[in-house]
Write a protein that binds this DNA or RNA. Structure first.
Lengths: 111, 111
DNA sequence: CCCTTATTAAACCACTTGATTAATTAACCA
DNA sequence: TGGTTAATTAATCAAGTGGTTTAATAAGGG
């Protein structure tokens, strides 16, 4: 799997609110599949599949622990996405510059 | 469309290398559909659909200009994604701290 | 006015996704 | 060993995605 494929998988995995909610839950610590499923109005197999998608994208890892499979957040793909967004930062920053100039112009015209 | 739906649309739109390539092209300036399609080994209607997806996600806007529809990058959804990633920054930053400590330990053992 | 260029719409197809219910596997516990 | 809990697999389904080709629309430019 090349770099582009990894980005594909990460973006795709994050494009579902349930999966982002699962990550948010895991940001507070590891959790079992049942614990992760609890807040959702969704069958357990459905949640299990979402977890599988997150795992395939490298966003979580799992460790068998007694009868539980503890899920753990892995933030590297999120960092990759953050790094990807950086190449566009100057573009939205430019919009702020326009705003700054506008505000400066307004201040000058007040004097 | 609420905030979560917008994130869904943006993540989903970015989960295809052709669409990310189109955005990279537009980062250098506005372009027509034909100009955007040129690098791809893909039919024009296929590219047209990708552009439609990007537009629906708010990642581009279009302006009719003579017989051309000039596409323009809109970076706000990318900024939204960047902001979303920030809530996980301390997690991957923690990994760097581990690395820093390791490097410091190595330096100390050199002395 | 016709012709060419630019782009989208329509119809279609294979494949994937997101969900369900029912059945199965795995491991603890008594 | 039998029961309970945890989680996945299997089978199924509706809807969505990504691509194709062919046809239609729209706007210049002779």
């Amino acid at each position: 799997m090349n770099e582009s494929d990894q980005l594909d998988a990460a973006f795709s995995a994050l494009a579902h609110p349930a999966r982002r909610a699962i990550l948010a839950h895991l940001a507070k610590g590891t959790a079992s599949v049942n614990a992760l499923a609890e807040p959702f109005d969704m069958s357990l197999p459905a949640v299990s599949k979402h977890i599988r998608v997150l795992e395939s994208a490298g966003l979580i890892t799992r460790e068998k622990h007694a009868q539980f499979r503890l899920c753990k957040l892995e933030a590297e793909p999120i960092r990759d996405i953050s790094n990807w967004t950086d190449q566009y930062r100057h573009i939205w920053a430019a919009r702020f510059d326009v705003m700054d100039n506008l505000l400066n112009d307004m201040k000058e015209s007040d004097q």
